[in-house]
């Protein structure tokens, strides 16, 4: 089962790379991805369980992406303003944020989202405690108000 779950994305990746549907290519890809998937399942992820997403969660994740991209663009503009300003009004600070998220998938998603949004960078992550470096104190408000956290919660933990 694990082998298959690793092999299917590998096969898709192979199809994108070769961009051909000739029998020989597809058979070669299938053999290679099964071998690699078997190796990954038995060597890399032997003791770890792979995260599972239900269909609904996957759908919600797809809805979450556009929102995240919008946030990222806003973030980049914010950072650009600060950097290009001759006076460079940065005032870095470190905040510690405790999060109720329990699954590791959602924690990873939250940490990555923090890093990608306005002037905030996840520095350390341990058991739901996020250490976040902020470029300016007003950026910290975006995390403390918990909007993103609620969205992540809705995507992965409902």
């Amino acid at each position: 089962m694990k082998t298959l779950r690793a092999a299917v994305p590998l096969m898709l990746f192979w199809l994108v790379l070769t961009a051909s549907v000739r029998i020989a290519d597809v058979v070669m890809g299938a053999i290679l991805s099964l071998l690699l998937g078997w190796w990954a399942a038995n060597t890399l992820w032997r003791d770890t369980e792979t995260p599972t997403l239900s269909v609904r969660q996957t759908w919600r994740f797809c809805l979450y992406i556009p929102w995240l991209i919008k946030e990222i663009v806003v973030a980049a503009v914010g950072v650009a303003e600060k950097v290009l300003d001759p006076a460079m009004p940065v005032d870095p600070c470190v905040i510690v944020h405790r999060s109720p998220l329990t699954r590791s998938v959602s924690r990873v998603a939250f940490a990555n989202s923090i890093t990608l949004t306005p002037g905030t960078l996840t520095v350390d992550l341990e058991d739901g405690t996020f250490t976040v470096h902020c470029l300016a104190p007003d950026f910290a408000a975006g995390i403390e108000n918990g909007d993103m956290e609620r969205r992540i919660h809705r995507v992965f933990e409902e």
Binding site: A76, V90, P92, V123
Partner: peptide
């Protein structure tokens, strides 16, 4: 740390 901000986002 601040350089990482600029690097990752931009």
């Amino acid at each position: 740390y601040s350089r990482t901000h600029a690097a990752t986002k931009c």
